[in-house]
Write a protein that binds this DNA or RNA. Structure first.
Lengths: 210, 210
DNA sequence: ACTATATACTGAACAATGCAGTAGAGTCAA
DNA sequence: TTGACTCTACTGCATTGTTCAGTATATAGT
């Protein structure tokens, strides 16, 4: 009956290792800080701590403020041991879901405006999060990290995000320029420009670097 | 009863728009070509074409070779209309699941070797796919694209992948160098180097570019 | 007093994954 | 030629994860 530990369970357990949280705080914190490494739904993040309790990795108690009550979760010694064990296990391969790219790959079923729209949406999403992380780093400079002793980890993680976001924004610009040369979404095939790009890629050179 | 169309349904429908496929071919093709835009399980890719049939977007018939039989799926006119309609709809925001980054973020529960291991696994996964795409581009140069009129789309999509893979590999190198300076996974906090990195990031500059 | 937003969740339906199982066909080596 | 292995070609079932709607209190602004 005691369900198994998924990567999501360890993610929540890792948050609990920092301090006790209420279910609500946990969902919010997880959605903010893990958004670009391990994105999970609010619903799941409410369920995971309950599972941790049944496994003995956390304890729970209700706190009440007036007529409201909330569940507070706290990690146990066994929970910390489980976390340490997790660090030694194999990771799952990375997974990238980018619908805008799917739209590009099948852009020949729609108009140029439609692909451009998909790229714009990708750019907007990425820009927003990019901006948010830059601001977060600004707040860290003013002593704003909630767990100061962990700043080195957050910051190294942030280098990944900033770097990836910049990369995607740069690619979207590039893709828009390329598409700007297309007379239509279809039937272009292996023309001169495409051949040039293919040649670069086949030599493991990115057309964005040159 | 007639389940709704998900993005995955459209992905399969888009493949069907290229030519008729058997279920088996479809799962293989989808896992190869959509792996880095819309990764889906074999199981789902067997189920989707059946749903398309119930919705009238595809037809199916059994072919047999000896005692073996296989299901062939073909797109209908309505299926093509549905695809065209899809291109006009909003995309979902991108989603990145990278367990190795989660391990980095909570690296203080394990050893330096453990984080390095996670980064190594990420690098290996990315390298393999990077290599595969470079080779695919080589084959395109020799007229190897199965749908030549769609080469421009595949190649622009490939620029994204190559660019992203290079970016991740570069970051993994960077992260390894940084971690190489750490005496342990924990308690480092906001030291000089971290402050330097934070300052760069807060000004929207990537330490990898400088 | 009213509206909007934040807090603080839960149930149920549905989407997607993982895994085991079934079974025919071709290849290669002892 | 028999056995082992891999590829083709799926399906059923249990479990994991998402979406959406619903419930209800608290607080801030107009």
């Amino acid at each position: 009956m005691a369900a198994r530990m998924t990567t999501s369970s360890y993610a929540v357990l890792a948050l609990l290792s920092l301090k006790p949280w209420t279910g609500y705080e946990l969902t919010n914190q997880a959605q903010r800080s893990l958004r670009y490494a391990w994105p999970k739904s609010e619903r799941l993040l409410y369920s995971e701590p309950k599972k941790l309790v049944t496994l003995g990795y956390a304890t729970t108690h209700k706190e009440k403020a007036g007529k409201r009550s909330r569940n507070v979760y706290e990690i146990t010694g066994e929970g910390r041991e489980a976390l340490a064990g997790w660090t030694e296990t194999k990771t799952q391969p990375p997974r990238f879901e980018i619908e805008a790219l799917l739209r590009l790959l099948f852009a020949d079923h729609g108009t140029l405006e439609a692909v451009r729209g998909a790229l714009d949406e990708l750019e907007t999403d990425v820009r927003d999060h990019h901006q948010a992380i830059v601001e977060l780093m600004g707040s860290y400079l003013n002593g704003g990290h909630p767990f100061p002793e962990r700043t080195h980890l957050s910051v190294l993680f942030a280098t990944f995000q900033i770097d990836m976001f910049k990369g995607i924004e740069r690619w979207v610009d590039f893709a828009r320029t390329e598409i700007g040369q297309w007379p239509s979404t279809r039937g272009l095939g292996m023309n001169e420009r495409t051949e040039e790009l293919t040649r670069l890629l086949a030599h493991d050179e990115s057309p964005l670097d040159t």
